[in-house]
Design a protein around this nucleic acid. Structure first.
Lengths: 153, 153
DNA sequence: CAAGAATAGTTGCGAACACAATTAAGATTT
DNA sequence: AAATCTTAATTGTGTTCGCAACTATTCTTG
């Protein structure tokens, strides 16, 4: 249980996992880059497109992206310059700024999404196979809920 | 096969996976931070400690870390300042600089390693369970070899 | 309702890193 | 052996992002 080192099998699982992640990430970045997007930009577009009124408060968006407030401010700066997002003041609470998807941003998302989905299929879903999909749900579900328990403890 | 969207099951697998990663990463960073290390620093120490003569050529180290040459130069700058690593010229090839673990760096690694292993156990190995370990080997082995095939094609 | 606490967002600053250009040294070709 | 190509590392520059400080608003509490 509380062994000091990992067993060979555990080592393999761990090292395969952490060695694969950066390459997987690079593959997704490379596949979305032809659209002039980073994965970070794309995530913003997805979240806004799914939100009511295609807008989110900065603080909610930052939390969803796990980005610091200042990090989000600057990411949005770029996306506003590109015309994909606009800043909209909130009439009810004047501290709040909404990040809102523009028509251009919406079009950009719709043109990029099929390629991104194909990318996820090709690099992630297909290699797993249908059994692997189910296993992946269970495995990372377990890791995630364990993390959440740790945090609340 | 070449469907446009993901099935609900695939969505769950994918979203659980990408939502868990940043939190898992943050947990490892938080656990190593009390040693005054980032995970990046720790990876350097591990690679050097496993290398023959506790030293590696800059270019080999950069490749192993998937870091650009300049990125490694600057990461080592910090580690040299901290006394964990020293730069050693190579007599056989005077273009080459070795990054070499110092005694201090070796001690730092040995003091941090048990905590890091415990961290990996707690956040990754334990939640998976022993079946999960084997599944993880297979799943990421498949993803990784698929990525390698893509690259060579 | 006035004073302090909490919340939302931006800005200054610094750390980490990638890309391009540069320097230096080996390897190859003729 | 000279010219060229390749490899190794560093430095200049720009981007991205976090932390701390600041401003502006709203909420809370005596």
């Amino acid at each position: 249980m509380g062994r000091l080192w990992l067993t060979p099998r555990e080592q393999t699982a761990w090292r395969t996992f952490i060695n694969t992640l950066p390459e997987l990430n690079a593959a997704f970045e490379a596949d979305i880059a032809p659209h002039g997007l980073t994965m970070g930009d794309y995530e913003v577009l997805v979240l806004l497109s799914e939100a009511a009124g295609t807008r989110l408060r900065m603080c909610d968006l930052a939390a969803a992206l796990r980005l610091s407030p200042s990090g989000l401010t600057r990411r949005l700066d770029g996306m506003v310059r590109n015309g994909w997002v606009s800043r909209v003041a909130c009439s009810g609470d004047r501290r709040v700024m909404y990040a809102m998807l523009t028509t251009q941003g919406s079009k950009k998302m719709e043109s990029a999404a099929p390629d991104h989905v194909a990318s996820v299929r090709r690099h992630f879903i297909q290699p797993l196979g249908s059994d692997g999909i189910n296993q992946m749900c269970d495995l990372f579900g377990a890791v995630k809920s364990h993390l959440e328990e740790s945090r609340s403890a």
